[in-house]
């Protein structure tokens, strides 16, 4: 069995000349890593994931997945190994019904139809949307679309899972469900998210990005508890780690309202 790993060396990328999105990134990921990629808006998290799957092409540096370099001719092979959940699930779904969409990848990989059906049923069951199987995609709610887009990737049974803001649009119950799905996925997974609580619950390693560079790379415990580090890079402690107690004040607890026109 191959050892799943990603090696990235001196990776640089810019959409336009002069505005560097990623700047000489060097990092490695290994088989059982669950890596949270965090950073403020525009830090380069999504671009980083897109480069790994070859949706963008780096101007400099290299990415190797299981020793295979990410380049045009190797993309089909690489994409068989990687499941990528897009930030915007509207663009992830393109078939007419959920079932058809979830079956798209297994069919493209020429699996026999009974295996396709088995994988579709399993993926839908994992994300608890079996009841939506025959629903037209355009009729799904935002959260349902997100779950369906996750199912489309799970049906590929990928070796590596890449997720860009997976908890967006999910209600608390489905978010909890997503956390358990992610925790059950035992291979390498990279999750780019602003939802630091999700990262806390699912990742054992965190990479903090800022202005296209890696500002910190370490254990989740170390990085997400480091308030000074997070604040310095435009983030805040996860809500579950804050000691602030939010209490609802009743009318009797409220301080008397101050008059805007105070007497001198």
């Amino acid at each position: 069995m191959s050892h799943i790993h990603i090696d990235i060396a001196d990776l640089s990328f810019a959409y336009e000349k002069g505005s560097q999105i990623l700047d000489q990134l060097t990092v490695s990921f290994h088989e059982h890593d669950a890596v949270g990629i965090i950073g403020a808006n525009g830090a380069g998290k999504s671009t980083f994931l897109k480069l790994i799957v070859g949706l963008e092409t780096a101007q400099a540096g290299s990415i190797r997945i299981e020793e295979i370099p990410v380049e045009k001719k190797t993309l089909p092979k690489i994409r068989e190994k990687i499941g990528y959940v897009f930030q915007d699930s509207e663009t992830q779904l393109f078939m007419t019904t959920v079932r058809e969409d979830v079956a798209f990848a297994p069919r493209n990989y020429s699996l026999p139809e009974d295996e396709v059906a088995r994988r579709v049923a399993h993926a839908l069951d994992l994300v608890h949307i079996t009841h939506l199987a025959d629903k037209p995609v355009h009729k799904l709610s935002g959260g349902e679309k997100k779950l369906a887009s996750i199912a489309t990737i799970l049906s590929m049974t990928p070796d590596i899972l890449l997720m860009d803001e997976p908890s967006i649009a999910l209600d608390p119950r489905n978010r909890k469900n997503l956390i358990s799905i992610l925790n059950e996925f035992d291979h390498l997974k990279l999750i780019a998210s602003h939802d630091l609580d999700l990262i806390w619950d699912t990742c054992n390693r965190v990479i903090l990005m800022d202005q296209g560079r890696i500002a910190a790379d370490g254990l989740t415990e170390e990085i997400l508890r480091n308030e000074a580090l997070l604040t310095a890079h435009g983030l805040e402690l996860p809500l579950s780690l804050t000691n602030r107690m939010v209490t609802v004040q009743g009318p009797a607890d409220k301080p008397p309202a101050k008059s805007p026109h105070r007497a001198p």
Binding site: L55, P76, F104, I153
Partner: peptide, 12 residues
């Protein structure tokens, strides 16, 4: 983006 999504799932 739709096309990218198709490519990510084996469409060539």
């Amino acid at each position: 983006a739709l096309y990218q999504s198709m490519c990510m799932r084996g469409f060539q």
